[in-house]
């Protein structure tokens, strides 16, 4: 692991919402090409942890170094860092006022990353990849949940990020649509994308994760390969949680 590039370095991360301590002391390194799945009960801080990785939540204290930039530092150019860190949300958050194609081209064109023509060409390729090329002109309201989430993944990929963050990407989906989204994510993992995934899909964690992190009460209580964490959990809270969800 030492020989590999550390993409995200987190040390002593703390996050409070007012008096509520959501993250108490989180330290972790995520290396290039690694797929890290974060599991844990509701309110354990796993989504907040993920959202600190691109500073969608202000960081109370500690360090979060993404591609060499400490984003806990208020002076860091957060927009520059975010260009390289894609994010997929539980509720998709597609831009409702734009069609699918515009959803994918908005940021790359607006930020001067590519010309409109190039962005559209790339967008069509990405839509093909997620199996939705025929929906390029559709508006988000005309898509199913699974389709929305696949578009959301394509939109994040349109910025050509090195890192992708997934915040419970299948939690708002009807059961029959979960598969199509996980399929796209597995494909991404196979291609070597660095991924941090917060999810309740234990099957996905087992199959795809290089490393599973179990969080509760604002701490990382256990981490290891899926075999270690699912097969032989050490912490009693992990055991308890896995007993309930498996």
């Amino acid at each position: 692991m030492d020989s590999k590039n550390v993409k995200i370095h987190v040390s002593h991360l703390k996050k409070n919402f007012g008096k509520l301590e959501v993250l108490r002391d989180i330290s972790n390194d995520i290396t290039e090409g690694e797929v890290v799945v974060v599991i844990g009960p509701s309110g354990s801080g796993k989504s907040t942890f993920l959202r600190c990785l691109n500073r969608l939540e202000d960081i109370t204290s500690g360090e979060v170094v993404v591609d060499g930039v400490n984003i806990a530092d208020k002076k860091a150019d957060i927009n520059k860092v975010r260009e390289n860190v894609g994010m997929v949300f539980q509720h998709f958050n597609l831009f409702n006022n734009m069609n699918v194609l515009r959803n994918l081209t908005l940021a790359p064109v607006d930020l001067g990353k590519m010309s409109k023509a190039d962005a559209q060409k790339q967008a069509m390729k990405l839509l093909e990849r997620v199996g939705l090329a025929d929906k390029a002109q559709a508006f988000p309201s005309q898509l199913s949940g699974g389709q929305k989430q696949r578009v959301a993944i394509a939109r994040a990929l349109a910025m050509n990020p090195d890192i992708m963050l997934f915040d419970e990407p299948t939690s708002a989906l009807d059961p029959e649509m979960v598969g199509e989204v996980l399929e796209v994510m597995k494909e991404l993992a196979r291609e070597g994308m660095t991924m941090v995934v917060v999810t309740h899909e234990m099957g996905f964690a087992r199959e795809v994760a290089d490393r599973v992190i179990f969080m509760d009460g604002g701490y990382i209580l256990e981490e290891g390969t899926p075999e270690e964490v699912f097969g032989n959990p050490q912490n009693p809270r992990t055991k308890d949680f896995l007993n309930k969800v498996l």
């Binding site: 691109n54 969608l56 927009n79 520059k80 860092v81 975010r82 260009e83 390289n84 860190v85 894609g86 994010m87 949300f89 509720h91 958050n93 597609l94 831009f95 409702n96 908005l106 940021a107 607006d110 930020l111 959301a152 939109r155 994040a156 910025m159």
Partner: peptide
């Protein structure tokens, strides 16, 4: 407007 709209735009690096 759902605040997820702003978050999604910001997450793409838009100011």
């Amino acid at each position: 407007v759902d605040k997820g709209q702003m978050e999604a735009a910001r997450s793409l690096g838009m100011p």
